[in-house]
Design a protein around this nucleic acid. Structure first.
Lengths: 194, 194
DNA sequence: CACCGAATTCATCGTCTGTAGAATTCACCG
DNA sequence: CGGTGAATTCTACAGACGATGAATTCGGTG
C-alpha cells in the first residue's frame, strides 16, 4: 500500500500523467476513457490528476495540445515540384500517423471527435483552418476554403480507414503504394481542376 | 405514475424501442448512449428494453441492422456511362446520408466505430466487403480489393467531414457541387488508372 | 369465463464515474 | 533547523450505468 504524502526524490509526475492521458485517450477516446484509467497507468492516485488539471476536460485539452510543427510541415509539402504536392501531403500525413508520439494524439482527437463536441471542434479547426488551408491558400483561387475541406475529407478518411478501422488491404499497404494511389486525389483537391 | 402491467390496446412497442435506439445511438454512439435514454425516448421502462433484446449490445445489433437495398444501390450506380460511375456513387452516398431513416443508422455506426469493436467491424465490412467491392469487382482487375478500400476511405471521410464533424464550407455545399468535386476521385479509385 | 403467456413496471444490486475535502509527507527557503 | 507550500494519497459522495427478478396487468385461447 503506497503511503500518503509527497514522494521522495523529484520526478516529472505531471508529465507522466500527460503521457498516460495521451495513451488512454488515444485508445478509448474522450468519453470512454476514465480519469481512473489514466491515473492507474501513470501509477498515481486519481485525485492527483484533478489536483494538476482540475477536470477531465482540462486534462484532455492539455494532453491533446499539438506538439506538431505545422509551419515546418507546410514548408516541406510546398518544397518540390508543384505537380507532386498531393503526394508529399500524403507522405507527411502517413509519417505523422506512424510516429507513436503524434499517432496517439491524432488517434485521441479522431476517436473523440465523433461524440465529443470539444474534440470535434479541434478536428474541424485542423481540417478547415489548419495546415491544409495554408496549402490551398498558397495556390491562390477563391475556392481555397472548399478545396481545403475536400482535401481534409480525404485525409481524415484515409486515417480512419487505415489506422482507426484498420480495413484491409489498405491498412497493410506500403507507404509508397498509398502515396501513389491517394496522392493524385489530393493533388486535384489542392491545385487541380475541380 | 404509470401503472405496472400490460398496456391496453396493442402498439408496436418493440418497433418504437428500435426507432428510439436508432435515434439515440445515432446521436451519441454506442458507448455514450444508455439503455435508459433509449427507454425514456420510447416512453418505456428500461427493463422492457432488456426484456426484448437481452443486452445493450444485442439492442445495438438489432437497431443497426441495415434496411438498405445494396443490390439495388449497386445496380443504380452501374446503370449509365462508365465514366460517370464515380459521380453516381457520390450521389447515392449523399442520398443515403440525407434520408433521415438511413442517416441516423449510418451516423450510429460511424459514431460508434471509432471506439467500439463491434461497430468497427460493421464499418469494416461495409467498406471492404460491401457494395463498393461489388462495384470494383464488376470492372475486373486483380486490385479490386485495394480499389474498394481506397474508395471507401474517401466515402467515409466525406461522411465524417460533411455530416459528423460538419466542417464548412463542405457541410453546406450543394449536392451537385459535391458530386462534381468528389466524383472524379472516386472515379479514379473505382475504374481509373491508379 | 378461466387460464396461460406475453407485456410492462418497480425496486434493487453492484459497479464505475467525475469530483471534492481532509490528511499526510516531503522539498526548499530562511 | 523550523516552517511554509507543494505533492501525494485516502476516503467519500452522489449520480449514472447495465442488469436481474419479482410483481402486476392485459390479450387471446379453450
Amino acid at each position: 500500500m503506497m503511503r500518503t504524502g509527497r514522494r521522495a526524490g523529484s520526478a516529472d509526475t505531471r508529465g507522466e500523467i500527460l503521457a498516460a492521458a495521451r495513451h488512454v485517450f488515444g485508445e478509448h477516446g474522450f468519453e470512454n476513457a476514465s480519469v481512473r484509467k489514466v491515473a492507474s497507468r501513470a501509477g498515481v492516485d486519481p485525485a492527483l490528476v484533478h489536483h494538476y488539471f482540475g477536470s477531465k476536460q482540462a486534462l484532455f485539452l492539455a494532453a491533446m495540445e499539438l506538439p506538431i510543427d505545422f509551419n515546418g510541415l507546410v514548408e516541406q509539402v510546398m518544397a518540390g515540384p508543384r505537380r507532386e504536392v498531393g503526394a508529399r501531403l500524403v507522405r507527411q500525413t502517413l509519417e505523422l500517423w506512424e510516429t507513436p508520439a503524434t499517432r496517439s494524439l491524432l488517434m485521441g482527437i479522431v476517436r473523440s471527435a465523433t461524440t465529443d463536441e470539444v474534440a470535434a471542434s479541434m478536428l474541424r479547426g485542423l481540417l478547415a483552418e489548419g495546415p491544409i488551408l495554408a496549402l490551398t491558400r498558397a495556390n491562390g483561387g477563391p475556392d481555397a476554403a472548399l478545396r481545403a475541406t475536400l482535401a481534409g475529407s480525404q485525409v481524415v478518411g484515409l486515417a480512419m480507414a487505415r489506422y482507426v478501422i484498420r480495413v484491409e488491404p489498405l491498412a497493410s499497404a506500403s507507404t509508397e503504394e498509398v502515396v501513389r494511389t491517394v496522392g493524385p486525389s489530393l493533388q486535384r483537391y489542392l491545385v487541380g481542376r475541380l
